[in-house]
């Protein structure tokens, strides 16, 4: 809370990516000077809301404001993150902050990217429980240990920070599934209630879907929820290799 106060910064230089294809203008960086309340460490999203009061045409997505809905993934001073839970004290370089859309996806307008490719990859992994057995009247039993295997996987908020930080996803967004979709793939492979493990692995067994991950680990360093997609991807690779032997 006090990092800003101690630096006694009261005015921030915000540089924000602007683009509206309908305008006929090329993308450009807009510079704004924004006065922030003293002694408070506000979030990047708060700063954006203040910017929008100056210029209502600035466009970005936002909803929950607490890092759970995954709307406001963006590139903050060069690193992907969520605007609503990134404090200025962490993001600022001097008194300057540069905001750009998530890299690698088509820009619809300003900070808003087209998430279609990202969602299409998610859909490919069949992101739902498959269990064709007859259902019990009550819950399908699962031990505490079995359930623990889903921790670190089910919490994904689909913000897109990881996949859009991944060079492999930039090069092959249609063939490499990307860290977010693969984390989900592993979530269902790991679920003791899912009966389609073999089919799921079959679907991943090609040169691109999983194996284009080269362990760069950008996904891990940007995930706002502290998840580890690289680890999940390695687990999938191990299962595929083990199966082939």
């Amino acid at each position: 809370m006090d990092a800003i106060a101690s630096k006694s910064i009261s005015s921030i230089n915000l540089s924000i990516y602007r683009y509206d294809p309908d305008s006929g203008k090329k993308p450009y960086m807009q510079d704004l000077s924004i006065d922030i309340p003293e002694g408070q460490d506000i979030m990047v999203l708060d700063l954006l809301n203040m910017a929008k009061e100056q210029d209502p045409s600035i466009s970005f997505r936002r909803s929950c404001g607490e890092g759970v809905c995954g709307s406001d993934g963006m590139n903050i001073n060069g690193k992907n993150g969520l605007g609503c839970i990134t404090p200025l004290s962490e993001a600022l370089k001097g008194n300057k902050i540069v905001l750009r859309p998530l890299p690698g996806l088509p820009v619809i307008k300003d900070l808003i990217v087209d998430m279609k490719q990202f969602v299409d990859q998610y859909k490919k992994i069949k992101p739902y429980l498959i269990n064709d057995e007859e259902k019990p009247e009550r819950e399908i039993k699962q031990t505490v240990e079995e359930r623990e295997k889903l921790d670190g996987l089910y919490e994904c908020i689909m913000c897109g920070c990881c996949s859009t930080a991944c060079p492999s996803f930039w090069w092959n967004p249609d063939k490499f599934l990307g860290p977010a979709a693969l984390l989900q793939a592993h979530r269902f492979i790991s679920d003791s209630r899912d009966t389609a493990t073999e089919e799921r692995l079959d679907q991943l067994e090609d040169a691109f879907s999983v194996f284009k991950c080269h362990g760069i680990m950008n996904c891990v360093s940007v995930c706002p929820k502290g998840l580890n997609p690289t680890k999940a991807i390695n687990e999938i690779k191990k299962k595929l290799v083990k199966r082939a032997l």
């Binding site: 359930r147 269902f188 679920d191």
Partner: peptide
């Protein structure tokens, strides 16, 4: 049954 990852008791 749809897959919601509920926390579990010792009895599952």
């Amino acid at each position: 049954h749809m897959g919601l990852p509920f926390s579990r008791t010792e009895e599952g």
